[in-house]
Write a protein that binds this DNA or RNA. Structure first.
Lengths: 358, 358
DNA sequence: TTCCGTTGCTAAATCGGGTTAGCGCCCGAT
DNA sequence: ATCGGGCGCTAACCCGATTTAGCAACGGAA
C-alpha cells in the first residue's frame, strides 16, 4: 500500500555510512565535525535519490520542538475578520517552515484550558492568543512554558506577554483627516459613540481609541464635533435608528461612523429622506468590511489590517521564541516585558467623501 | 522556569512499579494482562496526583499517529465561508480529541505539494481537501498514504475519495418552492444564470445544480420560468446591471437570484425605479451570506450549510480512517469508492417574499 | 621505535512512550 | 522432592531522529 517512509537509516545505508554521520551531514554540521568531502557528497546524493525527508515527529521527540504554532482564538465564525488574520499568520509561519494548529474557545474558559493542554501535549513551539475584536482578556495560566503573543487583545493583568493590536488611535486621526482634507470643518457628526470619551460601548477598546484619535485630529485643526449618537450595538439597524434620530434635529454635512455596519444603516437613513452620499453628506467609517466596497457609493473607510495583524503576531512570536532559547533570558525578559505593537490601519479612499462646498 | 513535563517514568516511580506496568494500566490493558488491583490503583493514583498527560509526540513516533487532521483549502480569505467550515471541522475533530492543521494553497499546485508534504512529515492521520466554492478539482497525487475527504469539491478524475458537498439541486427546488408556496406562478425571473441549462458561468457546480433544481420544482408545478439574465460574475454590480436590464423589458413579480450578492444588486435596481420588495417583487436567493440579514427587507435565502459541511467532512474522514486501519481494506475500499455525501441546504425564511396577489 | 596529535568516523545514550517475550514466584499435583 | 503451570510483573527492544563521547588509523616528531 503506502510505501514505507524513507528514514535516515535508509540514507545512511545507501551512502555506506552510519546513521549519525548522515545526520551530521544533513544538519549542516558536517563541516565543523570534519566529515570528508567524499562522504558528504555520498550522503547528500543518497538523500536526494531516496527523496529523504526527516520525520518531524521524531525530531520533535528528540529536540522538544515541533515546528508548529498554536493559534487559539475566542471565535472564528462571528466575523470574517478571523479569516484574514489566520491567513496572515499562516503565510508568515509557512515562510519559516512552520504549521499552525487552530483552536477555538468560544469564550469558554474550560475549553480554553483543554485546548492549551492539547497544544502543549503536541509540543507547540509557540502560542498566539487571538481575540476577534480588540479587547482586554484575562490571560490564562496554562501558557507558561511556551512563548506566547496576544493578538488583537490586551492583557487584563500585567504580564510579560507582548501584544499585537491595530493602531486605533491613529485610525481615528486618519478618519478625521479624511474629512478635514476634503475641507469639512462644520457639521461633522459621529455615529456609534461620543461625543464625550465616556460615551462608548463597554469593553470596546476600538471605540475609545477611535474616539480619542478623532477628537485629537479635529482638535488640532480647531474643529469641533457638532454632535454624536451612540449605538448599543454596532449593527446596521442601530446605525439606521441612530442616524434617523440625528437627522430629526440636525443637518450633518459629514458623518464619522464607528464601523461599516453602522455606516450601512446610516446610508439607509439618509436615503430615506432623500439625502445623497456624498453630495449632501460625506461619510467615513472604520473596518473595511467586505460590504464597504459593495455599498453604493462605495464606502471610504479606515481598514482593520487583519492580514497584517496575523503576520505581525507571528513575527513577534518568533522573536519571543528566540529569546526563549537563549540562556540569559532573564535580562531579555525583563527588558521586553509586555511590549505592545500597533499595526497601522490604512485608509481605503473610495466614493463616500466629497469636498465640502462650504 | 517551566517545570519539566511529567513523564510515564515519573508516574511509574511514584507508584513503585516499572514503566511498562504503568503504561499497561494507563492504556487500559491492565486487566487483560492480569495486573493486580493493588498496582492498578497505585498507578492510577500516581498519575492523577502528578497530573500525568502522555506526550502525544512520543506516542506518535511509536504508533505512527498524531491525533491530528490536516485541513487544506484553496483559500480561506476570499469569502467568509471558510470560517464556518473550519469551525464545524474543528468542533467535530475536538470532540474526538483531534486537532486541526490548517493550510492554504492559493490554488498553487506547488504550494499544495509542499503543504501536503509538511502535513505528511507531521504524520497527520487524515486529510480534508476543501474548496471555498463547490467545484471539480484535480486531486493531487501526494495524498495516498493517508485517508482523505474532499470538502465542497468533486474529483475531476475518478478516485476512491469520498466527497462532501452541499445539496444544491435540492436547494434549487427549495428556492422555487418558496415562491410556489407563496402563490407565485407567473413572472418568475432568474438573475445570475439560466434560463437554459447551458447558460451558466463555467466551473460553477452550484449554478448548474441550482438551475436544475429550480426548473424541476417549477416544472412539477406546471410553472414556466418567465425569463432570466446571466451574470459574468456573481457580484453585486452585475446583479444590479442584470436586473436593470431585465426591468427595461419585463415586469417581474418574483426573482430567484443565484446568490445573495446578486440579490443585493437586484434590491438596488428595484429601488432605483421605485419598486418595493416584497410588495411589488418577491426575492429568494442562495448562500445566506451575512449581508442577507442586514439587507432591508431581510433576504429570504437558501443557506450554504458551511458549519455542517465541515462537521460532515470530519465524520466521513473518521469512518475512512477506521477503514484504513482494518485489515481487509480491499473489500471496504472498493465498496465505498468515491461516495458523495450531500448536506442539505436549509431555507432561511425572512422578509423578501410575500404572497402573490395574482 | 615510541609517543602524541589529528583526522574522520561510529557506538551508545537519549527523547517518551508502546509492545513482546520471558523471568521469578508460589501453588498444587505427582 | 520435583515438576508443571498460572500469576504478576519487568527486561529489552522499537519508533526515527540528535548528540556526546570516544575509537581507529595515520602522520610526524622525539
Amino acid at each position: 500500500m503506502s510505501p514505507r517512509r524513507v528514514t535516515l537509516a535508509d540514507v545512511a545505508k545507501a551512502a555506506g555510512v552510519s546513521r549519525p554521520t548522515a545526520s551530521l551531514v544533513l544538519s549542516g554540521r558536517g563541516r565543523e565535525l570534519r566529515i570528508s568531502q567524499d562522504v558528504e557528497q555520498r550522503v547528500l546524493r543518497a538523500a536526494e535519490e531516496l527523496q529523504y525527508r526527516p520525520n518531524i515527529v521524531s525530531v520533535g521527540l528528540r529536540t522538544g520542538t515541533s515546528r508548529t504554532i498554536g493559534f487559539v482564538s475566542d471565535t472564528v465564525a462571528t466575523s470574517r475578520l478571523a479569516g484574514d488574520m489566520i491567513k496572515g499568520a499562516l503565510e508568515a509561519a509557512r515562510e519559516r517552515g512552520f504549521m499552525l494548529f487552530i483552536g477555538e474557545t468560544e469564550g469558554d474558559a474550560e475549553l480554553e484550558r483543554l485546548l492549551l493542554q492539547a497544544m502543549h501535549d503536541r509540543q507547540v513551539d509557540g502560542l498566539i492568543l487571538a481575540s476577534m475584536f480588540t479587547r482586554s482578556i484575562k490571560v490564562p495560566k496554562g501558557i507558561t512554558g511556551a512563548p506566547a503573543v496576544l493578538l488583537n487583545a490586551l492583557p487584563k493583568q500585567p504580564t510579560p506577554l507582548p501584544a499585537v493590536i491595530p493602531d486605533e488611535v491613529e485610525a481615528g486621526r486618519r478618519a478625521a483627516r479624511v474629512l478635514l482634507d476634503a475641507g469639512h470643518r462644520d457639521d461633522i457628526y459621529l455615529i456609534g459613540a461620543g461625543p464625550r470619551l465616556r460615551d462608548v460601548p463597554t469593553q470596546s477598546v476600538a471605540a475609545v481609541e477611535r474616539l480619542v484619535g478623532i477628537r485629537e485630529a479635529l482638535g488640532e485643526a480647531g474643529v469641533k464635533v457638532a454632535g454624536a449618537r451612540t449605538c448599543p450595538d454596532w449593527q446596521p439597524e442601530y446605525g439606521l435608528t441612530a442616524t434617523r434620530d440625528l437627522l430629526r434635529t440636525a443637518q450633518p454635512r459629514a458623518l464619522i461612523c464607528f464601523n461599516d455596519r453602522i455606516a450601512m444603516g446610516a446610508y439607509q437613513a439618509l436615503d430615506d429622506i432623500g439625502l445623497k452620499v456624498p453630495a449632501d453628506v460625506s461619510i467615513v467609517s472604520f473596518d473595511d468590511h467586505p460590504i464597504a466596497s459593495w455599498m453604493r457609493p462605495k464606502l471610504t473607510t479606515v481598514a482593520l489590517p487583519h492580514y497584517e495583524l496575523g503576520r505581525k503576531a507571528v513575527d513577534v512570536l518568533f522573536t519571543e521564541m528566540e529569546l526563549f532559547t537563549e540562556t540569559d533570558r532573564d535580562r531579555a525578559d525583563t527588558e521586553r516585558a509586555g511590549e505592545v505593537y500597533r499595526v497601522p490601519m490604512p485608509v481605503r479612499s473610495r466614493e463616500s467623501v466629497s469636498p465640502s462646498l462650504a
